[in-house]
């Protein structure tokens, strides 16, 4: 490879490159500027205060629980959406992905209507002595609500890109549907599952609006890191900035770990590795 291959415009006009650079700066400048606001001498102390550690610990625990829930519920959902055919599938798919475009606070109000004290399911649960609102379970529920579409979408793209050729062969060889799923499908889509799980984790970690609305804000119980940032703004803006930077760092690690393969690019990367079977189902 010559030096030429390092910079290729790919036929893109120069003015497009300039606007593209502005687009990238729109995102990069605010994030980079955040670092200039950090009170570096106090940084360590700010992010290891009692309330910060409680929030960080809670965020990690709830986000992991939400990711696990997303995997358990999302893998079957993605399989059904990608492989099965039934009436209303398109509508179901659109509705399941709704949290991607809904304001989280709307998600929080919806969760309250379902699982709140006077909610559709919350009221009978309350009568049975089970309270969800204001508990850590509510945080996990809110995070799962917003993160599940990320996992489903990543996985569905991976499934579609992988095609069903290997599965067909396995079943003609006598493998039961469960065996095909376990021995062929899941290993095939493992990279997609990992990417989806990492994205779901990142989304759960950043959940704010639905949590605040549905779960409340109490140290060690429901006050996750984003809620702590929001609260610290009131009393100690330096702490809010320091904790924001922690969340940015986690997000950067996540995006680099998934190779920056955000959702729409998933199918492209899957296609690259399996060109023969790509785009079998449209």
């Amino acid at each position: 490879m010559t030096a030429r291959s390092v910079f290729r415009t790919g036929g893109v006009p120069v003015w497009v490159l300039i606007v593209a650079a502005l687009g990238a700066l729109t995102i990069l400048v605010p994030i980079a500027s955040l670092a200039t606001r950090v009170d570096w001498p106090r940084f360590g102390a700010l992010i290891t205060s009692e309330s910060a550690l409680a929030a960080l610990g809670l965020s990690l625990r709830t986000s992991l629980a939400a990711t696990a829930t997303c995997i358990v519920l999302g893998v079957p959902l993605a399989l059904v959406l990608a492989r099965s055919r039934f009436p209303g599938q398109g509508i179901l798919r659109a509705l399941v992905l709704l949290p991607l475009v809904l304001p989280p606070v709307v998600g929080g109000i919806a969760l309250l209507s379902a699982f709140g004290r006077r909610g559709v399911f919350g009221a009978p649960l309350e009568a049975a002595g089970i309270t969800i609102a204001f508990s850590t379970v509510a945080v996990v529920l809110a995070q799962t609500f917003v993160a599940l579409p990320f996992l489903v979408l990543s996985l569905e793209s991976a499934l579609r890109a992988a095609g069903s050729r290997y599965e067909s062969v396995a079943s003609t060889l006598g493998a039961s549907p469960t065996t095909v799923l376990r021995r062929v499908t899941l290993p095939l889509i493992l990279p997609g599952l990992i990417t989806g799980a990492v994205l779901a984790f990142a989304r759960a970690l950043g959940e704010f609006g639905a949590t605040l609305t549905f779960a409340g804000s109490l140290q060690g119980v429901t006050r996750t890191l984003p809620l702590e940032v929001y609260l610290q703004r009131e009393s100690d803006p330096d702490a809010a900035v320091a904790l924001s930077l922690v969340l940015v760092a986690v997000a950067v690690v996540v995006m680099l770990a998934t190779g920056g393969r955000a959702i729409p690019a998933m199918s492209r990367s899957a296609q690259a590795s399996r060109p023969a079977s790509a785009g079998v189902q449209k």
Binding site: T213, S217, L218, Q219, T222, L231
Partner: peptide, 13 residues
């Protein structure tokens, strides 16, 4: 309390 809100509106809600 079961929750400590950031604003009065959170409590009222």
């Amino acid at each position: 309390p079961v929750s400590e809100e950031n604003a009065v509106s959170g409590v009222l809600g």
